[in-house]
């Protein structure tokens, strides 16, 4: 029992110093409303022990002018559609854009780690203080891992990667 306890403390200290990353998550966990945001989506493993061949990311309403970064070895596609409302983007109106990003045909083995990057702008009408989620689905040979539950609950088994929205920087 004592050995168990020692291991528990060791594990705990380990957790404090080197965060392990088994959830799909965003590198930058905070973003300003009305500002550009570079999303780096970290994918630490496959589905169970299977390799990931496709990653789908939903772009919810409020994140506009989205541009994904191409990735060698992966086919990049986007699904475009109408926004629910029209947004002002540096003086011009944006009413349509990327709704979903798909990196497919790749190979990310369970043993490896990779990052997927896209950028865009949070519209000024979003409410600061809330989390903004990018539901993401890893697809593998026989199944998927769906990181789509929109929750801040740390115990949720597969939370959607999210970013905390901060108030707009007005001095900018």
């Amino acid at each position: 029992m004592k050995r168990n306890t020692t291991i528990a403390l060791a594990f705990t200290l380990g957790a404090l110093t080197t965060p392990a990353l088994a959830h799909v998550s965003l590198e930058q966990q905070e973003a300003r409303v009305g500002a550009t945001y570079k999303a780096v989506l970290r994918v630490p493993h496959g589905c169970g022990d299977q390799a990931t061949h496709t990653l789908r990311v939903q772009i919810p309403e409020g994140f506009i002018n989205v541009k994904p970064m191409p990735k060698p070895g992966w086919t990049l596609e986007t699904v475009r559609g109408e926004y629910e409302s029209s947004y002002d983007y540096y003086g011009s109106a944006l009413s349509e854009g990327v709704k979903e990003i798909v990196w497919s045909g790749g190979n990310l083995p369970n043993e490896h780690y990779d990052e997927f990057v896209f950028r865009g702008t949070f519209v000024g009408s979003l409410e600061p203080g809330q989390s903004f989620y990018f539901p993401s689905v890893q697809e593998c040979a026989d199944g998927e891992e769906a990181w789509i539950e929109q929750t801040d609950d740390h115990d949720a088994p597969k939370p959607a990667p999210g970013v905390k929205l901060l108030p707009a920087d007005h001095q900018h």
Binding site: A8, A15, P19, H154
Partner: peptide, 13 residues
């Protein structure tokens, strides 16, 4: 462990 989780470390499972 719980404190660690709330401290903002990323969570593996």
């Amino acid at each position: 462990l719980v404190l660690t989780l709330f401290a903002g470390a990323a969570h593996a499972h």
